[in-house]
């Protein structure tokens, strides 16, 4: 994560003018309480994404609208509108099923299989894609959905975790709670949101003293088995994929007069990053002194940038 912070900052800058396409689908509830819950969650996401600004293109399908045909039409629209430099986030809320070989997202009328969804996403030119499948049995969809350039997050580790999930609730909460932005750089990455939702989901079962029936996983390398935590190459794409910008980050980047300050800031961040990286090998007093000096300087530079 230390190195990623710098990379992330660069990507934020590079992608500042790109658009993000958000497609959210609330599938078939099957019972009034689930219908209401899934629709409510989709609407909450819709609200969050629409507040993200002009670069956000938001499509939300719920209730009777959320048919396979409508999903196909919506994703085709995104495929036509988006470019390679854009980002694409597909969120699936509802029930899923897995028969041992094939995952299906339950919709009014015919369902969509993971392979169907993958094919639809493949037509979208955005080079950086994120599929967040929060349904039961969603772990069964990973193999079909994963490909380089597409990160996949699922609420369950396999297709055999078939109970209704709570992951969606905490995924949405992550997008609403500033605490999810753990590095406080005012951009919420997919990794931060995933870590928040996964931790809260685990805590839910722990507090209820219930056996956890869902274990969220992700894959962002495009191949192999999904994992629960970053490491061994997994997690890099999610850490650089911004889902939401929370504050004024990026505004300064657009001001040419602040270029020198930005460069100074970046240098200080790199210095802090290097200090933290070498902490174990440093004298504690020396580390503390150098870190304090760099942090104080960074705070001053940030103060200048904020003026």
């Amino acid at each position: 994560m230390r190195r990623l912070a710098v990379l992330l900052c660069m990507l934020c800058t590079l992608n500042a003018s790109a658009a993000t396409y958000y497609v959210t689908v609330a599938g078939l509830g099957g019972a009034p309480e689930y219908e209401q819950r899934f629709t409510g969650e989709a609407h909450d996401l819709d609200k969050v994404f629409r507040a993200a600004g002009a670069a956000a293109h938001v499509y939300t399908l719920t209730g009777a609208q959320a048919t396979a045909a409508q999903v196909r039409i919506t994703l085709a629209t995104v495929a036509q509108s988006s470019t390679a430099g854009d980002e694409f986030v597909l969120t699936l809320i509802g029930h899923g099923s897995f028969d041992g070989t094939e995952y299906k997202f339950n919709l009014p009328g015919p369902d969509l299989s993971a392979a169907d969804l993958a094919a639809l996403c493949d037509r979208i030119p955005a080079k950086r894609q994120l599929v967040v499948d929060t349904t039961s049995a969603s772990g069964g969809a990973v193999a079909a959905l994963e490909r380089p350039g597409r990160a996949v997050i699922t609420a369950t580790k396999s297709g055999t975790e078939k109970n209704a999930t709570v992951f969606a609730r905490y995924w949405i909460e992550a997008l609403q709670d500033p605490a999810a932005d753990t590095d406080k750089n005012e951009t919420l990455t997919a990794m931060e949101a995933y870590a928040y939702a996964a931790k809260k989901t685990a805590a839910f079962y722990d507090e209820q003293k219930r056996l956890a029936t869902e274990h969220a996983v992700f894959d962002d390398t495009g191949r192999g088995e999904p994992v629960r935590e970053a490491g061994n190459g997994q997690g890099q794409m999610l850490s650089s994929l911004t889902i939401l910008r929370l504050g004024s980050a990026g505004a300064a980047a657009a001001d040419p007069a602040k270029g020198a300050l930005l460069a100074r800031k970046e240098a200080l961040e790199s210095k802090i990053d290097a200090l933290k990286y070498g902490k174990a090998a440093m004298d504690p007093g020396d580390y503390r002194q150098q870190l304090t000096a760099a942090l104080v300087e960074l705070a001053r530079v940030q103060g200048e940038l904020d003026k």
Partner: peptide
């Protein structure tokens, strides 16, 4: 506050508190 900033160097409220303390 240094622990907060060690975890999140760009955390603006913490930066302000650090400057205030300094």
């Amino acid at each position: 506050v240094l622990l907060a900033l060690e975890a999140a160097p760009d955390y603006r409220p913490a930066q302000k508190l650090l400057l205030q303390l300094q």
